[in-house]
Amino acid sequence: MLQEGITYIHEHMTIDLSEVKESEDCKLDLLDETIEEMKELYALGVRNIIDMTNTGMGRNIPYVERIMQETGMTIVHATGYYQHMCLPIQVFEKSVSELAERMIREIQVGIKGTKSRAGVIGEIATSENVWTDAEKKVFDAAIIAHKETGTPISTHTSIGTLGHEQVSYFKEQKIDMEKVIIGHVDLTGDAEYVLHMLDQGVYVEFDTIGKESYMPDLTRIKMLHEIEKRGFTDKVCLSMDITRKSHLKKNGGLGYAYLLTDFVPQLREAGISESFIQKMLVHNPRAFFK
């Protein structure tokens, strides 16, 4: 499914959380600017974007297909539902099996009447230090869809919380841990917390690179250094999770390329091995989606 090359494991080509967050900045709908940045990424060796925008987050399939056509990038669509504050009414009205059937249809047939199919179940979410009943309903539906289709599952942890609980739940449900990736673990700031998850066999995402208002990149680098030192290099992936107009270069943000133009050089300067860097950018995402 993925092309040879670098993969950004957790991004958004377009997303609309403007109503929930009461900010127009949270409506990422700058098509031309996004295409321009994707062309820059392509020139830097990126070939795959895993787009985590799902139902209720402003998912727009024709928009994303246009980006693919204009850039040559492979963009993987997601099926599923996000955290409680963004859940559409159907999550509360439909049964777990009905939600699972919708996910399965989007994986096997197509999304919203198109022929574009989902290649990942995500980003299914827990809230900060709280796992609501509705969110558990989504997890249960995702597990059914995963068992039916074999499609990998990607999660959202709010500020890195409840990652251990998510892993434990998947283990209880007898999910293949190599088909699960836990998101936003860099926001824990705690290498030991992440190492515990890696020891359980799941993949993890350091996917908020550059968001220093949440966590300094230096902390992320120190965490990755410890992870490499302990030998857990095979299941870590990188991304930036761009979600706002202000994140794009044209609006003064870091832009999608920051991960490669700035953060990766910092990793090298800090003594992170080239082998680990290439695993995080190229080999680990391909192994997850094999």
Rank of each mutant, 00 (worst) to 15 (best):
H12Y: 04
M13A: 09
D16S: 10
E24Y: 13
D25I: 01
K27A: 13
K27Q: 11
L31W: 04
I35C: 09
Y42H: 14
A43K: 11
G45P: 02
M52L: 14
N54H: 07
G58A: 12
R59H: 12
I61N: 05
Q69K: 15
V76R: 01
V76Y: 02
H77T: 03
T79D: 01
Y82E: 03
Y82N: 03
H84Y: 09
P88S: 15
V91G: 00
V96M: 07
E101G: 11
M103L: 10
M103H: 07
E106F: 00
I111M: 02
G113E: 08
R117V: 06
A118Q: 00
A118G: 07
G119E: 00
G119N: 02
G119A: 08
G122I: 00
A125T: 04
W131H: 11
W131K: 10
A134L: 05
F139D: 01
I144M: 10
I144S: 12
H146A: 12
H146R: 04
E148Q: 11
T151H: 05
S154K: 01
T155S: 09
S158R: 08
I159N: 09
T161N: 14
L162G: 05
L162N: 06
Q166S: 12
V167Y: 01
S168K: 15
K171M: 14
K174A: 15
D176C: 13
E178C: 15
V180F: 06
V180D: 02
I182H: 01
D186L: 04
D186F: 00
L187W: 02
A191V: 02
E192C: 10
E192K: 13
V194I: 14
L195I: 15
L195S: 13
H196P: 06
L198E: 06
Q200F: 10
Q200A: 13
F206G: 02
F206T: 03
D207C: 12
T208G: 07
T208D: 08
T208A: 11
G210D: 05
K211Q: 15
M215S: 11
P216S: 10
L218H: 12
R220S: 08
R220H: 10
I221W: 02
K222V: 07
K222N: 14
M223N: 06
L224G: 06
L224I: 10
E226H: 11
R230P: 05
G231V: 04
T233N: 12
S246N: 13
H247Q: 15
K249I: 09
N251F: 15
G253T: 06
L254A: 14
Y256A: 06
Y258T: 10
L260K: 06
P265R: 12
R268S: 15
R268G: 13
E269H: 11
A270E: 13
S273N: 14
K279W: 05
L281F: 05
P285H: 08
P285Q: 08
F289Y: 09
K290E: 15
K290Q: 14
